[in-house]
Design a protein around this nucleic acid. Sequence first.
DNA 1: TCTAGACCTTCCCATGATAGGAAGGTCAAC
DNA 2: GTTGACCTTCCTATCATGGGAAGGTCTAGA
Lengths: 160, 160
Amino acid sequence: MNIGQASRASGVNAKMIRYYESIALLPEAARKDSGYRDYDEADVHRLVFVRRARDLGFSIDRIRDLLDLWNDRARGNADVRAVANAHITELQAQAQKLEGMIGTLQHLVKSCRGENRAECPIMADLSGGQVAPHYAANLAKTQRRLISVAKPSHIARFRK
Amino acid sequence: MNIGQASRASGVNAKMIRYYESIALLPEAARKDSGYRDYDEADVHRLVFVRRARDLGFSIDRIRDLLDLWNDRARGNADVRAVANAHITELQAQAQKLEGMIGTLQHLVKSCRGENRAECPIMADLSGGQVAPHYAANLAKTQRRLISVAKPSHIARFRK
DNA sequence: TCTAGACCTTCCCATGATAGGAAGGTCAAC
DNA sequence: GTTGACCTTCCTATCATGGGAAGGTCTAGA
């Protein structure tokens, strides 16, 4: 199986396959006499694994851990859950930051009606330096809302 | 005002100030006889503007637009709202993706109880290639939830 | 057998925002 | 005058991805 076929079968770009090999995320591929890389079903399976993990936002280093766990069948589910939970925590932090930004911007846009420049707080807020009162209030509000969405108390049950 | 003082006053790293100047996000700074960059209050004000916009997740290119709007007081609030709304839409897309990933992972972790490897779907799901039924169902669920959180119908009123 | 073109190889470069560091010049205080 | 804080430019790296050049290999058809 050439790299192109492995790429189509796994959904991982050929360029990325070579890159993953170069950073030792994947073992060195077998080679044909021509020098072409040669893949089999197991290789494709591993590529699919990597692609799925990337789709779920795992970093390359985290995927390294997951592949180790995958290769070592003796390792328990707790290890797997620990990696997944660490990743969930990271994603939640990102989501919280995003929701805070969205909430603040929505509030600013909502407060900016009409065409009178003086009445639009967006520019004023951006250039204000310190956090304007409505911004602080809105930030706290969106964070509370985000927390209720993410339900960390619920997640805590799964934390290592 | 040296770059260090401007940095402390604005909260923008000196390295970043030079970078922003090099990509023409900021005008070339005035120079003292020594060659040192020389900033005044207006410069600091602009730096604060950039920092606040970065904090809100605006890209450099979007900040370029915002600075143009800022410099051109004749432009109306609708222009400002348009930039902000475009950014909100981008942030919501990111948030939606994140929430989907979080939901999927939470579901997988929840389904992975005990220590029997066979009972843990995380690895199976990652290596599965196609989306497992519970993944698809969960994805749809988290997306609905995210949509209700982000309230796009509400935002639509402010779209250009 | 020759050739076209699809595919492969390695190597270099670019992205965006940020940061570290080297080598050397300037300033202020003691 | 010296020390140390600060400044300058220039080079490098990050992470994951992708574009492209220059050149080798394979396969199908004339």
